[in-house]
Design a protein around this nucleic acid. Structure first.
Length: 556
RNA sequence: GCGGAUAUGGUGAAGUGGUUAUCAUCUGAGGUUUCCAACCUCAUGUCGUGGGUUCAACUCCCGCUAUCCGCACCA
């Protein structure tokens, strides 16, 4: 097991900078908090992890990949609840100009100011006149929302519309629901995933890559019929995993056992937790340093019904890297309410339901001219009445009573056959913080335990995500060895999805060390014999073992 | 946001109110070398940023920016 320490973190960070894996962005201009570059080696690592993530979920067979804009109009994020929920209420001291959070300075005057509306906060602020924590005066500006989203203007001048940089990729998947529904020929379940940048204007970015202002997210929205029968089957990780259920301690259980006990509340959630576990291990996270923690009811995001975080242990302690949330019908319903568009799926009944309609409705020709604008509401009210009422009758419309007499109505008696119904699908969302995962891949791959008593650093990447696949090393750059190495290098680079580097400077040991430092799994060494018989030495990063093979057998 | 600490070649460090800022390592060139950071020669490359004090500031003071730690915030 790795010993995480300050020293280890320090030498890891210095290797990441020196070798161009992860570095602070815009450094020549002084840098900017919460922004990082993936450098010449890190960029490739980032790509590999994302590729692996996408194909991991596409394996499911009913999932498509989307790419939606990062700039998002105001209304979209207002409908989703982000404008309201993703912000803090701020007020500024008119005396010293210090901004404070309104709910925090009102804590002494209300048991839970966080739950108050803007108006209530404003009212309470005026009545209680709390002292400014900075200067002691009580002269506050009006309460304003400060949003954690980056805002921007779409267009310019008077025609500009308000917008935000998206705080999550998910909303694009919801607003695209009709198109995805059509693509899958209206049959659930199906999913859409997206990998891309998200933005949050964090008050205090911290801990290197752990909290960023611009970050890579990978999200899957999986749409299900909440009434469809669920299989008990769970794919993927079958070993016990550490689970922390809401209000309970840590337990080691398999996902299917946790589901059977009701600890995990939904089969699909359990299935995705299991697939998440498999993914994390495949990209190189240590299985023993992963745990799943269920959100308590009061920390659940505004949209969630059940939520589990996959947390990974590393140099910064336990860090949430994945959230798997049962969002219910929250999002589609919210966008439906805001737009009036139907974001639903059709559920056919196994047999059409025969319904006897026996009641009343208006006689349009008579009631229309009499009730004018109220006719519509009266019709709705009448159709709710049982068959055994008698007229004249007082009907409540918008808190008024309207007298309806026999001549305004007619009896409705018919048999309806209903083939199915529209419903709002539920959504299970696994959301991955790619940067946090990459950080922990690096943290867990880093090995500085030394070699032969000397200091020696190595990144033991899994082959699936290693930024460089091969390092070609001519033992010397003479007698044709340099030329042969160049030829091999070029041939490898021509292969799809293969990255090779060529290194001819320094002693062979130094070059193996350089390759180990950026985690190249295999070094190919060209020596005198290579020039004569066309064989080369393959040297494995993790154990230093060597085998000689034919150049023609190099790529598999 | 508050409190504390820090900022010197790519990386890690030393140091000074006064000539050309030191060391290790890395990197590059040449030499040497038949497989795990060997050696020799040469070379490139640094005082975060803006202002002030001073004859003179990398050094002292102030602001800013960034980094780290704690608190708060955030998921």
């Amino acid at each position: 097991m790795v010993e995480f320490s300050e020293q280890r973190l320090g030498s890891l960070v210095s290797i990441l900078r020196r070798r161009g894996i992860i570095l602070p962005a815009f450094e020549i201009h002084g840098g900017a908090k919460g922004f990082y570059d993936f450098g010449p080696v890190g960029g490739r690592l980032h790509r590999r992890v994302i590729q692996h993530w996408v194909s991991h979920w596409l394996k499911n067979g009913n999932i498509v990949e989307l790419s939606c804009p990062t700039v998002t109009p105001f209304q979209v994020l207002e409908a989703s609840g982000h404008v309201g929920e993703f912000s803090d209420s701020m007020t500024t001291c008119n005396s010293c100009e210090e901004a404070s959070r309104a709910d925090l300075i009102l804590e002494d005057f209300h048991p839970n100011p966080d739950a108050l509306s803007m108006e209530e906060l404003q009212d309470l602020l005026e009545r209680s006149q709390p002292a400014c924590p900075s200067c002691g005066q009580s002269d506050w500006s009006s309460v304003e929302l400060q949003n954690l989203m980056f805002n921007t203007a779409i267009g310019s001048g008077k025609s500009a519309k308000a917008g935000f940089l998206r705080p999550e990729t998910a909303q694009g998947m919801f607003t695209s629901f009709p198109s995805i529904y059509r693509h899958f020929r209206e049959r659930l379940p199906f999913g859409a995933l997206q990998v891309g940048k998200g933005y949050r204007n964090e008050i205090a970015p911290r801990q290197g890559m752990i909290r960023l202002r611009e970050f890579n997210m990978a999200e899957l929205e999986y749409f299900i019929d909440p009434e469809a029968p669920l299989s008990e089957e769970i794919d993927g990780w079958s070993e016990p995993v550490n689970l922390i259920a809401d209000g309970k301690g840590e337990e080691s259980l398999t996902f299917s056992a946790a589901l059977k006990q009701g600890m995990i509340r939904h089969t699909t959630v359990a299935d995705f937790m299991s697939k998440t576990m498999t993914f994390l291990v495949e990209v190189g996270i240590d299985a023993n340093l992963i745990r799943f923690r269920q959100h308590e009811a009061d920390e659940m995001a505004h949209y969630a019904r059940d939520c589990w975080d996959a947390e990974v242990y590393g140099s910064y302690g336990w860090v949430e890297c994945v959230g798997i949330a049962h969002r219910g019908c929250y999002d589609l319903e919210a966008h439906e309410n805001a737009t009036g568009q139907r974001l639903r799926a059709w559920r056919g009944f196994s047999e059409p339901r025969i319904e006897q309609v026996d009641g009343w409705t208006i006689d349009g020709a008579v009631a229309g001219p009499v009730f004018r604008g109220d006719a519509g509401s009266i019709k709705i009210a009448l159709e709710k009445l049982p068959a055994d009422v008698s007229f004249p009758l007082e009907v409540a419309i918008d808190e008024r009573m309207v007298k309806v007499s026999q001549e305004h109505v007619k009896r409705v008696q018919r048999t309806e056959s209903i083939a199915g119904e529209w419903y709002i699908p539920h959504v299970i969302e696994p959301a991955f913080g790619i940067d946090r995962i990459i950080w922990h891949i690096l943290d867990h791959a880093f090995n500085d335990t030394g070699k032969d008593g000397e200091e020696y650093s190595m990144l033991r990447f899994k082959a699936a995500v290693a930024p460089v696949d091969y390092c070609v090393l001519p033992l010397f750059e003479k007698d044709g060895m340099g030329e042969l190495a160049l030829k091999i290098h070029q041939r490898l680079c021509a292969e799809a999805n293969v990255v090779s580097i060529l290194d001819g400077s320094g002693s062979i040991g130094r070059r193996y060390a350089r390759a180990d430092e950026i985690g190249v799994p295999i070094c190919i060494t060209v020596d005198h014999q290579s020039v004569e018989d066309g064989t080369v030495t393959l040297r494995q990063r993790d154990d230093g073992s060597q085998t000689r093979i034919n150049i023609s057998d190099l790529t598999s």
